[in-house]
Amino acid sequence: MSDSELRKDDTTATTVARVAAGEWIALGAFVALALFVHQQILGPLTDAGYADGDAVNNAALFPRLIANLILGLCAIQFVQLLRRRVQLSAEFMYDAPRENALRCLVGFGILVGYLLGLPVLGFYPATVLFLLAMFLTLKTRPVWIAALVAVLLTLAIGFVFEELLRVVLPLGRFGLTL
C-alpha cells in the first residue's frame, strides 16, 4: 500500500511499503536539534559559566532535560519507521501537481524578495509589488485588475494600520506615509 492509496481521513498508524525519505529527514532534523542543544550547552553556555551551579545559575539544566527527552522520542520514532509504521496527517494526502509546487516555490521567492525590499522601498511600494507578483503567480488576469486590486488593498491596509492602529510601518528610503 503506497502513500497515495491511503484514505484521506485515515489518521491511524499504517504499515507502508516504503517510508518516505522526508520521514527520515524529519527524524534526522530532530536528532540534530537535540545534538545542537548539547553543543550549545557544552560550548557557549559552559564558556559563559552558566552550565552548572545552583538552580539560578544553571541555565543548562532544563535544556539538557528536554534535549534528552527528544533523543528518547527519536529512538522510539526510529523503531516505528524501521517497522514501516507511519502515521500520516489527514490533511495532505493528495498528490501535488508539479506546476503548483513550482508556484508555491515562486511565491516563497516573492516573499523573500518582499522582506528584502521592505526596509529599502518602504511599505507602500514594496507591498504593491508583492501583491501584484502574488496575484499574477496565482493566475489573476487581466493584469490591470490585479494591479488595481494590489494598489487599493495596499492603501486600505496601510490606512487601517497606520491611521487607525497608529503603527509605524517600514518607511524605506523614500519615506512615504499616508
Partner: peptide, 24 residues
C-alpha cells in the same frame, strides 16, 4: 511530544529569565 518539546526549546531562545544567561 516531539513538537511539544520543540516548542519548549523555542521558548528558551533569548535571555534566561532566571540567570540572564544568553541561550541559543
Amino acid at each position: 511530544l516531539m513538537t511539544g518539546a520543540l516548542g519548549v526549546l523555542l521558548a528558551m531562545i533569548g535571555s534566561d529569565p532566571l540567570s540572564n544567561a544568553a541561550r541559543f
